[in-house]
Simulated assay, not measured.
Amino acid sequence: MKRIHFIRIDKNPLQIILLIVLIIAMVISIFKPFHLENPKIYKYIYITGMFLMIVVNGQLFWFKNAVQWNKKGIVIKLNAFFKSTSISFNHISDVELTDNTLKISRHNKKDSTFDLKDIEPSDSKKIFDIINTNRIVENSTFY
């Protein structure tokens, strides 16, 4: 059984630190606020910033099975290297988890079906739980 790599975007402190360092490196390399004897240092800072950008944004492409989410939506990539499906939580009307499939129904009548036959059952359940806890249910009353 294959495992899914889960990446939560908004609560990862390492990713937030990398983004801050990335922004600082890019600002320093573009505006060059310091007078340095060796101007090639700005090139190295720029290359470091670009490398950090690849590390932060490329996590989804490192794994064949990955799920990336925050409070607004989810990106699901299963059994593929480049094809992924991005779904906003407020567009989800219903979610069904059967033995080998995950079916996500949307308000605009576009359904997404994912094949889970080689996926670990605990990971399938985790995707289902992530979607159910984050989706916005229309006409629901919260107490």
Score class of each variant (00 low, 15 high):
1 M>S: 11
2 K>Y: 10
5 H>Y: 11
5 H>S: 14
5 H>G: 08
6 F>G: 00
9 I>E: 05
10 D>P: 04
11 K>A: 12
12 N>A: 05
12 N>T: 09
12 N>Y: 03
12 N>I: 10
14 L>Y: 07
16 I>Q: 05
19 L>H: 02
19 L>A: 06
22 L>R: 00
23 I>Y: 08
24 I>R: 03
26 M>K: 04
28 I>L: 12
31 F>D: 06
32 K>I: 05
34 F>Q: 03
39 P>I: 10
40 K>L: 14
47 I>A: 15
47 I>F: 11
48 T>L: 15
48 T>K: 02
50 M>F: 12
50 M>R: 09
51 F>A: 15
51 F>T: 14
52 L>F: 13
53 M>F: 10
56 V>W: 11
58 G>L: 06
60 L>R: 11
60 L>A: 06
62 W>M: 12
65 N>Q: 06
66 A>Q: 08
66 A>H: 08
67 V>S: 01
68 Q>F: 07
69 W>I: 06
69 W>H: 02
70 N>H: 12
73 G>L: 02
74 I>C: 02
74 I>K: 01
78 L>V: 07
81 F>N: 13
82 F>A: 13
83 K>L: 15
85 T>Q: 04
87 I>N: 01
88 S>N: 05
88 S>V: 10
89 F>E: 01
89 F>A: 02
92 I>M: 02
93 S>Q: 03
94 D>T: 08
96 E>K: 02
98 T>S: 14
98 T>I: 07
99 D>T: 15
100 N>H: 15
100 N>A: 14
103 K>Y: 00
106 R>P: 02
107 H>C: 04
107 H>V: 09
112 S>I: 07
112 S>F: 14
113 T>S: 09
114 F>R: 02
114 F>K: 06
115 D>C: 12
119 I>K: 01
121 P>N: 03
121 P>T: 05
124 S>W: 03
125 K>S: 04
126 K>I: 14
129 D>G: 03
132 N>L: 04
133 T>Q: 09
134 N>P: 03
135 R>K: 07
135 R>A: 02
136 I>P: 03
137 V>G: 05
137 V>P: 09
139 N>V: 06
140 S>D: 04
142 F>P: 06
